[in-house]
């Protein structure tokens, strides 16, 4: 078995970003919270969060530019994107976090809420894929 090098490098960078943010400014790298604060918080705490969000896109651009790897083909179904976007947005705010906040940062702190949330969204996402695959016969 060969180790998947890019996922490992990617994961280390994601974890390092979270540690850097905690070490320097004492904040959790929970993207759903950062995104929501970036557009809704009317105070000075907003600036770093806005820049973080822009940084995500800049980082992705830099990666493809420097590595020469092509942009991936992404799911092009607009109806599915609307339904999923709504569910993801509604869910992450209700559940106070997503893959980054609960999955990476929360588990890093061994927070029980995050362990529960991560188990729930992983299991539901796996079941969703299974059901979609079965009903579409693909």
């Amino acid at each position: 078995m060969t180790l998947p090098i890019w996922p490992i490098i990617g994961g280390i960078l994601i974890g390092s970003s979270a540690v850097l943010l905690m070490w320097l400014i004492g904040r959790t790298a929970g993207i759903s919270s950062i995104v929501w604060n970036a557009i809704s918080t009317p105070n000075s705490d907003r600036i770093w969060q806005v820049l973080f969000v822009f940084g995500l896109a800049i980082g992705a651009f830099l990666f493809h530019e420097l590595s020469g790897r092509p942009f991936p083909q992404i799911n092009n179904d607009p109806k599915l994107a609307i339904a999923a976007g709504l569910l993801v947005g509604f869910g992450v705010r209700l559940g106070s976090g997503c893959t980054s906040g609960h999955g990476v940062c929360g588990i890093g702190r061994l927070a029980p809420r995050s362990l529960v949330a991560t188990s729930v969204f992983m299991v539901v996402a796996i079941l969703t894929v299974k059901i979609v695959r079965n009903t579409m016969g693909a």
Binding site: A84, T99, A117, F121, V124, T128
Partner: peptide
């Protein structure tokens, strides 16, 4: 927490993006 994580998981499984990757 449970309901939110569940709805998020449903959306993630339907399309394949969670918030960070979607923005990137």
């Amino acid at each position: 927490l449970i309901l939110g994580a569940g709805l998020f998981g449903l959306g993630w499984g339907l399309y394949g993006y969670c918030p960070g990757p979607a923005i990137a």
